[in-house]
Design a protein around this nucleic acid. Structure first.
Length: 615
RNA sequence: GGUCCUGUGGUGCAGUUCGGAGUGCACGCCGGCCUGUCAAGCCGGAGGUCGCGGGUUCAAAUCCCGUCAGGACCGCCA
């Protein structure tokens, strides 16, 4: 039906007879002798000149035949990629009429998200959504290519899986053939991919849909996509290298896909510049021959590596945002023998916020409330004034501080006039959590702002606190291999055991996590013991996995990258709904289809589901 | 389960503090004029259950209670 795409036409095309199809982005009529129609398709818009009036309204679907010509001198539009040319002598055919759109489709205008989602098919026509989903496609293609290049084999695993009552809440699917029995949709292909390792596919990957029936957030949907991978005969660094390559390839492909798009040209330019001078190559260089193919991203971006303890101790978070300058400092020595009651605690940590002395009492009170909500007994604040050499301290606590303590506080935090020092004295974990939250909040950085700072966080604890019955709870999942140095602690002091689990973090967002898995039955049994899962229970829940492990399980480990989050960051969106074609609202509703909806009586009967209670 | 923010013609907002006639702005829509516009311009017009329900009051978009929807967050997300 068409010879060209609207956004592709350039002066080189002048003189060509073209046929275009698209939607009316804008119509400008100048009486009965002249009208302009901006015709839009996925590549952009081009101006069509109609001699006479034109019967076409916004979003009507048109087929236009005409001749490309240079615009008359002085009428070029430098804001448009096609702005040097126009389509003349147009014959316009109306392919389909359209009602006026329920909201403006240009990217300048905001629209209520509920309305956008109800008319998502129209919303998707907007350049921003077109860009987001096309960048996503390019990034997924690059990841897939990177994995294949690295020798991984793509394998699909079942969506109709079996209940594994651990971890996230599962979506259940009633069985028609076995009334009363249910499949569940997988929270992730975790167990399936471990079975693939036993099956000898020693490098597996999948662009996998995962489903978790948990409450939704800006960065969480019921269903989301992971780059899921698993490898045999590896150490954590091997997995991390493979993941870093795939993620780097995706990010580069995302940037390339953004170049030339009508949206955010300036941002793309600055990104490209950054890419040009950015340091790289911390990971081992890839096989030769990949270097010149931009879709393959042979070398990894620069990635920091730190242990979980370092991350918590220094940044107050297991997903540290390395863009934020101020870090937590240990004030234990300063307040070692203090008589200030508020500072007597196992740990005293401080945070210096540059320029924070201007914060008013209301803000400081709000921060204190927040600290209490996060479990701290309080939050001490010190507004630093004066000038270097003669600092003054404004704080309710100041009159209780000794001269040494005041000096120690200032030197340890490196505070200068105009700064705000915040101090929490409590258990180590509370100090870290509270100051970590406040550090992030005071920085006020959007996840998409500025540079991208990737980091690996390693050596997570094997268990994260205790559950309601006082039993340690698995931090990652119950198949995570303990750190080899901590094996003997497993029975004595399980909460102190580190694991071989690791996260990939970008600007404070967890992009994914993984671990080396337990492949030996004796260690698995000891872990189940700690978790309070007896042999019978373990057999009932994970029998097929444990059974498989008796038939020659290789040592293995893997990872899963959150694709939605990665794409969101790449296109500068803070909400993954913007990179998903048909997302759900925070209450799990699809405003377009109305799902979820009741099932008819007949369908319920077929599925063996009883009548529902009155609603 | 909880905290907070939002809800006003099709869209985006102002009006809510301190009650006084559905008042206002921009865009869009409909009609007219207009031969080089491109966020076109000019003139005219239509379009409202102020989310919904209840209460207080002579009087409620505005105050109170409840409820629904959307969003941000906490819990939750092995």
């Amino acid at each position: 039906m068409r010879s060209d795409l609207c956004g592709d036409l350039r002066p080189a095309d002048v003189g060509r007879r073209v046929r275009l199809c698209g939607w009316v982005a804008k119509r400008r009529e100048h009486g009965e002798h002249l009208a302009f129609v901006d015709l839009r398709d996925r590549t952009g818009v081009v101006q069509c000149v109609v001699d006479g009036s034109v019967e076409a309204r916004s979003e009507w679907v048109l087929s236009v035949e005409g001749t490309v010509r240079a615009r008359p001198a002085g009428t070029e539009n430098p804001d448009l990629p096609t702005g040097a040319v126009e389509i003349a002598e147009c014959q316009v055919a109306v392919v389909n009429r359209a009602e006026p759109p329920p909201f403006p489709l240009d990217d300048r205008s905001a629209a209520d998200e509920a309305v956008r989602l109800r008319y998502r098919f129209v919303d998707l026509r907007r350049p921003r959504m077109q860009r987001n989903l096309r960048v996503r496609s390019a990034m997924v293609a690059a990841m897939r290519q990177s994995m294949v290049d690295q020798g991984f084999c793509e394998v699909e695993t079942p969506l109709l899986w079996t209940p594994t009552p651990e971890g996230a809440r599962e979506f259940a699917v009633p069985s028609r053939l076995h009334h009363g029995d249910f499949y569940v949709l997988p929270q992730s292909p975790q167990i399936a991919k471990q079975l693939l390792m036993v099956g000898g596919f020693d490098r597996y990957f999948q662009i996998a849909r995962c489903l978790r029936d948990e409450d939704l957030r800006a960065d969480r949907q019921f269903e989301f996509t992971q780059l899921d991978l698993e490898m045999s005969f590896v150490e954590p660094a091997d997995v991390q290298r493979a993941v870093t390559r795939a993620v780097s390839a995706a990010l580069e492909a995302g940037e390339m896909a953004r170049v030339g798009e009508p949206v955010g040209v300036a941002e793309v330019a600055s990104e490209a510049a950054r890419r040009g001078r950015g340091p790289r190559g911390s990971a081992a260089s890839g096989p030769s021959g990949e270097r010149d193919d931009p879709a393959r991203a042979p070398e990894a971006a620069e990635v920091a590596v730190m242990t979980w303890f370092e991350a918590m101790d220094t940044y107050g978070s297991d997903k540290p945002d390395l863009r934020v300058e101020s870090n937590l400092v240990d004030l234990g020595p300063v307040f070692a023998g203090t008589e200030v009651r508020a500072m007597v605690a196992p740990t005293v940590k401080g945070l210096c916020h540059r320029g924070g002395a201007e914060l008013g009492r209301n803000r400081l009170d709000a921060l204190t409330d927040q600290a209490r909500q996060l479990g701290a007994k309080g939050l001490a604040w010190f507004r630093i004034g004066g000038q270097s050499g003669a600092l003054t301290v404004d704080s309710p606590l100041d009159k209780f501080l000794s001269a040494d303590e005041r000096a120690g506080l200032l030197s340890a935090t490196g505070a200068t006039p105009g700064d705000l020092v915040l101090v929490v004295a409590d258990e180590w974990r509370v100090c870290c959590d509270v100051l970590g939250h406040i550090r992030q909040e005071l920085a006020g950085l959007a996840v998409t702002a500025g540079e991208r700072r990737l980091c690996w966080v390693t050596d997570f604890p094997l268990f994260d606190g205790v559950d309601d019955e006082g039993r340690p709870a698995a931090a990652h999942h119950p198949f995570t291999m303990p750190h080899p140095d901590d094996l003997e602690l497993l029975d004595r002091d399980p909460l102190a055991v580190r694991s071989q689990a690791y996260d990939l973090v970008l600007n404070g967002w967890e992009l994914g996590s993984g671990s080396i898995r337990v492949h030996r039955e004796d260690i698995q049994r000891r872990i189940f013991d700690v978790l309070g899962i007896g042999p019978a229970q373990a057999e009932a829940r994970f029998g097929f996995l444990l059974g498989a492990f008796r038939y020659g399980a290789p040592p293995h480990g893997g990872f899963a990258v959150g694709v939605d989050r990665l794409v969101a960051l790449a296109v500068g969106e803070e909400n993954i709904r913007e990179v998903i074609a048909f997302p759900k609202t925070q209450s799990g509703i699809d405003p377009m289809t109305g799902a979820p909806k009741p099932l008819g009586a007949r369908q319920r009967r077929e599925l063996g589901l009883g009548p529902l209670a009155e609603r």
